[in-house]
Structures are given as structure tokens and as C-alpha cells.
Design a protein around this nucleic acid. Sequence first.
DNA 1: TAGATATTTAGAATATCGTCTAATTATCTA
DNA 2: TAGATAATTAGACGATATTCTAAATATCTA
Lengths: 87, 87
Amino acid sequence: MNKLFKALDDPTRRKILDILKKSDLSAGEIVQQFSMTAASISHHLTVLKNADLVLAEKRGQQVFYSLNTTVFQDLIEWIYSLKGEEK
Amino acid sequence: MNKLFKALDDPTRRKILDILKKSDLSAGEIVQQFSMTAASISHHLTVLKNADLVLAEKRGQQVFYSLNTTVFQDLIEWIYSLKGEEK
DNA sequence: TAGATATTTAGAATATCGTCTAATTATCTA
DNA sequence: TAGATAATTAGACGATATTCTAAATATCTA
């Protein structure tokens, strides 16, 4: 849970998630959406990957990233447990 | 949204929310649940308050804190929008 | 009113985080 | 195979965060 909240606590990383909502993208295509070096974006992708928020799949030279929505269920349950509701 | 995610990105603050789930507590009562100075807890309470995650009410010498669950709705909607579901 | 209690604020020390440049690794293709 | 392209890793730097001690503020009560 720690890694999840840390991963979400950055506007760039949240924007990456938002972009991936529309379609899977390669690292390079993600970089194009930001005014930031590829190294920085790569770092953010690593954080998202370690929090299981995205999946990475290498295809040739490129690495394609996609949203992994399964983790959001944990987050939703955490929220509802605070709200004191069942689900 | 920025402040919300930042506020949630700390184990101490998340534990405070969890403690407040059971009952409203004064700042001092919250401090007792941690091995940390009152000043540090006060700082965390300020962060939570600024993110609208808790409400503070002064009663005499004491300040009582309570969960403000209304903000969680924003978070839930943010998650569902990423998951691509209506609600 | 004086002292005690509850809480917050100020300021400093240390750790963590986000970003960069430069170098490295892996893959493709002429 | 050599060079080009895609992406990551390493290391450094500045900014931000967390925690502490000490001091300040507000309220209660003897």
C-alpha cells in the first residue's frame, strides 16, 4: 500500500496513467507527451511498474506500457473501509 | 487533487485516518497512539486538514479531529475514471 | 492572577524525491 | 558487422518532506 500511494503522489505519474487509459503506448510515445527527458519518464515508469499500476511488455526495441487496473480494487477497498461501508 | 494524494502518501497520516475511523479524538489522544512528538503529529494533522481529509473542532483547550469522508468521493471518481467505468 | 495543560509554530537537521546529463544495454537494419 | 534507434541505469544536484527541540499561544483552574 505504501508503494501504491507513493506512486500516485506525483502529477507526472498520474498524467501517465491518464494517458494510458486511452491506449497502450511505448515509452517513447509517452515521453513525447511531456517536456521532460526520457530518463525522467523512464524513472516514473519504473515507479508505476513497481507499484503494479502499469504493465510493461517488450516488443523488439520498444517497451509498451499499459494500465493495470487490478490494483485499483485494493485502493477502492481501502477507501471504503475508511468510510465504514461494506463495498 | 494534488494535496489529497500528497496527504495520503505517508504511513503516519494514513494511520491517523484509520484511528479516526473508530472515533473522533483530540490531538493529544492521537499523539498517544504514536511514538512521535506532538509537534510532528500536529504537522501531520495540518496536512490532513488542508487536504480536507479531517475536520478540526476546538473545544476548550483541546482540538478534536474527525474524519471528513466527503473527499473520498472525489478519489473514488478519479479511480473509476481511470478504470473506464461509470461509477 | 499564576501556574499547569493542550496544541501549534518556528527553525534546523536529515532523508527522500524529481530531474538532469552522460553512459550503457538491447535491438534493428543497411 | 557498424551504426542508428529505443530505453534504462548511474550519479549528481536542488527542492521538498519528515522529524526534532524550543518557544509561543490559548485555555483552564486553584
